[in-house]
Write a protein that binds this DNA or RNA. Structure first.
Lengths: 343, 343
DNA sequence: TCCTATCGTGCAAGCGCTTGCAGCTCACCT
DNA sequence: AGGTGAGCTGCAAGCGCTTGCACGATAGGA
């Protein structure tokens, strides 16, 4: 492996100059800089991360915690985070918490003095612990806001306003909400906002449902018994399961039941049936989280935590329509696009 | 942060002794060792990874490449890998290749002198490049075997023997195979083995299908047109989509079509309908890959590459039965469990 | 023309840990 | 009793990079 010295010797300068040419462009003359860069390039020089980490105190690593990798919702978030990290010359260590606060804290503990920052999607730990952790290490929470901790939140609760209005306008008065993991900061807010958006409707919340297909099939019975005319699910995977069970029973969307969900995975390359959903900027959220983390790491001074909120947009599709009254009667009122049964 | 010196001073020994007490238990006397350990514990000493990496030349990091995080098939594999890495005191850097050989090589290049080893699930790069990479850095391929590179393979092709026999015994003579990504080492072999296991049946292969729900819905038409009585999909996500579309059309499994897939995700905590599948030991594969990687890293000598194959077992479930002749006729021959239509 | 900023570069001291080597202390053997 | 080896421990030299400081050169002002 070529080292700094090799480049220095070859370019006829000292190692310090090479180091500066590579990282502090303004500190060396243009002439030497270009010569050094060319030499480095020619010799295929790559800095030794450990040596740099030892000298600077920065590891060039970031930790990124998610509850599960089996949930495709996280895929674009991680992809965005990874891209941002790569651009900044850092690597991402993705860790899985299984949604357990204990495991989350254990992982933080384990990684705290090995990485330059820690990001967590929907962390389960109590707010006080998170705030404490943030004092020790750059910390960013995604989809959860905690006093004293920088955060990036995809505003699906805010999206409930539009979605609720949409359903209300269609005439739905009884809506089922299929909720996410217990104690989810975001999920509580989604439900609250949905209720606020549909003050005249009855919202029957059930859950918690894990973000799995089968949870949706199980949810069907509760939904069917509730007499609701529309369903809002926090996860499209759950909704897919529900849709499947419905279809099994000979019911269709939107004829028999209107369907909507709070995350649109088609943006993640995961096409799914034509379901009304919220467009969630997952990749952007991941990217912003990493950028914030790097900001925090750069200015070792804690500073005031920044909270960012990413808006979502409603994607009205074929799975929602005015409440119907029986199987297979999806077609009504001439709106062909909207009334086409969902597959 | 407490350093080695702090512990040394506190314990009344030199830093070298502390270092040895911590990593080379046999080299210090029992008395000093326990004293040092207790002191380290009391002061909350944790070694500085960068310093250790610089001194030893080992980074304590492993790279793990997968094509996509949106594919839940990878979740247990990564989980197993992570667990093994954690036990060994290493961290895992999970990277996403999007199935592109170019990105794969770029990532390898980028990480090669930053990690102690590189594992790749179903790598897309040509065999020669992989062999070359293996000469440079400990490398393990999963679900692909390459001459000169250690590998761990989940033997789904082998599982096709049992699955084929199962279908043949039920009387299926026309079977559709829904194949995976183009150029997949494993997928080619699965198809070959399925054909070998059902020499008297006609196997209609189609694809490539990405591992997504919607790919399954698209696949339905091809399957329906083919006149097959059974479907074998490489991915359960694809099969889920197919099942959904079938149901939409009023068809049921196994009455109208028997269904089976090559990966069983219920082991990954992802319950899905009662589909005949192969139990795939994903977590074990991930774990073994990491252990092999660490072996290779320890014995800097390349040694002979080791190839491990993990067997799969057939999980016959309700989605396969003797070929039927019409919708809703799933119930036959008194086998209630087997004949229950799949939901 | 001499003095003083300014700019560019090199020197050398680390960053915290590991490890070859040397030295010391005993126990054991002859 | 002296010699010898084994068993522990400490010394010090790095691992490859960054960076404060000093120094020399150059340009500008007086």
């Amino acid at each position: 492996m070529t080292r700094l010295d090799d480049v220095a010797r070859e370019a006829g300068v000292s190692a310090s100059t090479v180091s500066r040419a590579l990282t502090r462009p303004g500190m060396v003359s243009e002439a030497t800089r270009s010569r050094v860069l060319a030499t480095a390039e020619r010799l295929g020089y790559r800095h030794h991360p450990a040596a740099r980490a030892l000298a600077t105190g920065r590891a060039g690593l970031l930790a990124f915690a998610v509850a599960s990798l089996a949930n495709p919702f996280h895929a674009p978030i991680i992809a965005g985070a990874q891209e941002a990290a790569e651009e900044a010359g850092s690597e991402l260590i993705v860790v899985v918490t299984d949604g357990s606060a204990a495991r989350e804290e254990a992982l933080f503990e384990r990684l705290a003095d090995r990485v330059d920052g820690f990001a967590a999607v929907g962390p389960a730990a109590p707010a006080a612990r998170l705030a404490e952790a943030a004092r020790r290490l750059p910390l960013v929470t995604l989809n959860r806001r905690v006093r004293g901790v920088s955060s990036v939140v995809i505003d699906t609760p805010g999206g409930m306003a539009g979605l609720g209005a949409h359903l209300a306008a269609l005439g739905h008065a009884r809506v089922a909400y299929l909720g996410g993991p217990e104690g989810s900061w975001l999920d509580r807010r989604r439900l609250r906002e949905l209720r606020r958006a549909m003050p005249d409707a009855e919202i029957a919340a059930s859950g918690p449902y894990p973000p799995e297909f089968d949870a949706g099939t199980r949810a069907f019975d509760a939904v069917a018994a509730s007499g609701c005319t529309a369903v809002v699910a926090y996860s499209s995977t759950v909704l897919l399961g529900l849709l499947h069970r419905m279809t099994m029973k000979g019911l269709r969307a939107p004829g028999d039941l209107s369907l909507a969900c709070a995350d649109d995975l088609s943006a993640a390359g995961l096409a799914m049936p034509d379901v009304t959903a919220l467009r969630v900027p997952g990749a952007e959220a991941g990217r912003l989280a990493v950028e914030r983390l790097l900001d925090l790491a750069r200015s070792s001074r804690p500073g005031t935590p920044a909270h960012q909120t990413l808006g979502v947009t409603l994607l009205p599709r074929a799975s929602t329509a005015a409440p119907g009254r029986g199987a297979g009667t999806g077609r009504r009122r001439g709106d062909r696009e909207r009334a086409r049964p969902v597959e």
